[in-house]
């Protein structure tokens, strides 16, 4: 790997000041599970990496008032085994458990995963299901955006060069809403991930959220498919098939090593139905 210099700030202010100073020559470093692979191949080159793991403020997972907060230093393993996550959002723990392998989970961070914006990844589509938001610090202050606004394309976010995502805030699903997340793929990266969250009253869908990851260039909320489900009968299989069809037609599936766009659209059609069925079943239980 091309040599670089390591910067180890100890506060958020110092971190963003260092980033600002380095400009295009520097990048934030957390777990490095994705960044360092790109640097090894020479795809990305930086003169300086700024280590967020030396900043105590960015540590940890916590829960308060219906919201889980995941700090920028929290690894996938930390989230997977967090008592707060297991108690309040076991779906997040189970999806995190299936990220890559145990070695990557011990090192890679959830916030780093979002900010690297690798399309073949589960946390983005999962966190869209929860309508999660990220808090961002920069030399000029702080702001917040939804995960949906954070990730704008493959390996591309709406962050400026001197901005640091300090944490992701995950509101629990509203009362009565149950979630499911299904993934499919061969080898170590998924071909697709589908999230579904539903609430049901009197045999009808009251509210629905559907999200898709890995198949399109970025984690995507499937609002057109959600719309046909709201108010529709839960036990009418034609409704789920129609939602799957709309999701498949509307999704921006891409051809890549994980399959052709046509193949992925077929998977979307099938997995939207399965994820809906699983979310409904969890609600019944």
């Amino acid at each position: 790997m091309r040599p670089f210099r390591l910067y180890e700030p100890t506060t958020i202010n110092e971190t963003v000041a260092t980033l600002s100073e380095l400009g295009d020559d520097g990048k934030l470093y957390a777990g490095g599970t994705e960044l360092l692979l790109a640097m090894k191949t020479g795809l990305l080159q930086y003169d300086g990496l700024v280590n967020v793991k030396t900043v105590p403020e960015l540590e940890g997972v916590s829960y308060s008032n219906g919201t889980l907060t995941i700090g920028a230093r929290a690894t996938h393993s930390t989230v997977e085994h967090s008592a707060d996550v297991l108690a309040h959002a076991p779906l997040i723990a189970s999806v995190e458990h299936r990220v890559a392998n145990v070695r990557v989970r011990n090192v890679g961070t959830v916030v780093g995963n979002l900010c690297f914006a690798e399309p073949h990844s589960d946390p983005g589509a999962l966190l869209l299901l929860y309508e999660a938001e990220v808090d961002i610090a920069s030399p000029s202050g702080t702001r917040s955006v939804s995960v949906e606004q954070l990730v704008v394309g493959p390996y591309e976010t709406s962050l400026a060069g001197d901005e640091l995502v300090t944490r992701v805030r995950v509101p629990l699903l509203p009362n009565g809403m149950r979630g499911a997340y299904l993934k499919f793929g061969y080898h170590h990266r998924p071909t697709l991930g589908v999230g579904a969250a539903v609430s049901v009253t009197d045999g009808k869908f009251l509210d629905v959220r559907l999200t898709l990851g890995s198949a399109p260039p970025k984690p995507t909320r499937m609002r057109d498919a959600e719309a046909v489900l709201r108010g529709a009968a839960v036990d009418d299989p034609a409704v789920a098939i129609e939602a799957g069809r709309i999701a498949a037609e509307g999704c921006d599936a891409i051809d890549d090593l994980h399959g052709s766009a046509e193949y992925k659209r077929h998977l979307v059609q099938v997995f939207v139905q399965r994820a809906l069925a699983e979310a409904v079943e969890r609600g019944v239980k």
Partner: peptide
């Protein structure tokens, strides 16, 4: 970080020493 041939334990947890 895919194959595990470089696995070592850091504070008891497995990591990929290649990366």
């Amino acid at each position: 970080q895919v194959c595990g041939a470089c696995t070592v334990l850091v504070d008891g947890l497995p990591v990929s020493a290649c990366t």
